[in-house]
Design a protein around this nucleic acid. Structure first.
Lengths: 242, 242
DNA sequence: CGTAGGTTTGACTGATCTCAAGTTTGGTGG
DNA sequence: CCACCAAACTTGAGATCAGTCAAACCTACG
């Protein structure tokens, strides 16, 4: 049992949800030279335009990806939780088209892209798992385009919260109601394409309706079913079942 | 030289732009049992929720993918041109999370997902090419989230037109100005998350500025540089260079 | 116990939407 | 070759959702 078994266990569990792995596959993953590293909140892991030669696994904490408009408006395009592989795309694309940033203090496992690519090349089931992850990510992006393009503010915010609740719960046991959102309202605004002011007003509306818990300035789920319904949330696009 | 060499040549050219293929890889592709089929415009190739057991290659014509809101609002999430592989995701995901529809009369090549998957399994360079395609698609979706989430109507429409012009030109020789857009204004609206009425007004504005050609009711580029600039268009996210 | 970051409020503005008519265009059958 | 029709495009007017600006107000943390 090597030193980074605990870290790698997370990664293995994640990939097992994506494809059936055999002993040899898991051995190969355990052999990855994963360099763990703690980083503060709001720390950039990748900047748009970088040539990234490494891949990060998010071992603890939260992160997001975002892009910016010429005028500096920010759009968050995805959130990431424990176990997610940030920047899988570095394996095959050379230049980052977006930034990756922590949203909370985090621990990451860093591995050279070439090493991971090599492991994937020698273990087709691992490659399939990673490819499948890419496909699911693409499905999530499609849903975001719909969310941001066609839903009004209240449905948009609700939908985004539902997705995060489910994803942060994936493989866990506790209920959606217990979700801890690492979001400032600013972040929510940037993820939904709204202004902070309007985001604040809509969150208050969600609190008044009971969908979010009232009497706190944090975002907490009050009524999961109600939030699902306001957000028109249907989880099939997450392709969660292996 | 088998009967479907011409059709497969398109596919091979596409994949060669994505990864270095060897003779054996190309042979395998030529061996694909590609059943060609002509379909009219507005024909559904996949419906959201389908379990699709086949993969389509778009041999001629145009297609798009879209999703719908509960209330029936449509959001187009991508456009496709000659050579594109529609629904690569069927190789690893079972249920379609979106619909695929032709935008013009089209010719498609149909191949069972399992056969293509099998070829990919036995030819790692082909699998890499397909994976890379998935990654690029994801990058395009990210840009769409930004486009729809943070750009105003005129930039949004311009950006979308720039992307299509470039993609429909890929591998070709003619200039962006010569692009033929197979779009109704309704489609443009659904791709940008705007209403048809506003889309119409913005297109008129683009014509008045010279970015689009005036004096026609079709969408034609008038001034490519201007359109790029209005759309804040930077093609790096297309990862076009192999 | 001061401060910075985050949240909330108010007042006003404006981009985009909706509804409801037209008008033009391209394709089809006589 | 023309008349007709449906689909696509335009236009106008009024409504509204969401944005902006600017000022407080919390509250966690040093």
């Amino acid at each position: 049992m090597s030193a980074n078994d605990n870290e790698v266990a997370l990664l293995i569990r994640k990939l097992e949800r994506l494809a059936r792995l055999e002993q040899a596959d898991k051995e190969a993953l355990r052999g990855l030279p994963l360099r763990t590293q703690r980083v503060p909140a709001d720390h950039y892991l990748v900047q748009e335009g970088d040539v990234a030669l490494e891949c990060c696994v998010l071992l603890k904490g939260y992160a997001c990806r975002h892009k910016m408009t010429r005028s500096g408006d920010r759009q968050v395009v995805s959130f990431h939780v424990q176990g997610d592989i940030l920047d899988l795309q570095n394996l095959l694309l050379s230049r980052a088209d977006h930034s990756v940033q922590t949203v909370s203090p985090a621990t990451i496992g860093v591995v050279p892209s070439s090493v991971l690519k090599d492991v994937a090349d020698r273990h087709p089931r691992i490659k399939d798992a990673l490819w499948r992850e890419t496909l699911i990510e693409a499905a999530v992006f499609r849903e975001w385009v719909l969310n941001v393009g066609r839903r009004n503010a209240i449905a948009r915010i609700s939908h985004m919260l539902c997705e995060f609740a489910l994803r942060s719960q994936q493989g866990g046991i506790s209920s959606p109601e217990a979700t801890v959102f690492p979001f400032t309202q600013d972040l929510v605004a940037d993820a939904t394409g709204l202004s902070v002011v309007h985001t604040n007003r809509v969150i208050q509306e969600l609190r008044a309706s009971g969908a979010l818990r009232a009497g706190t300035s944090r975002i907490e789920i009050g009524d999961w079913e109600k939030l699902l319904s306001i957000g028109e949330f249907d989880p099939h696009y997450l392709h969660a079942a292996a």
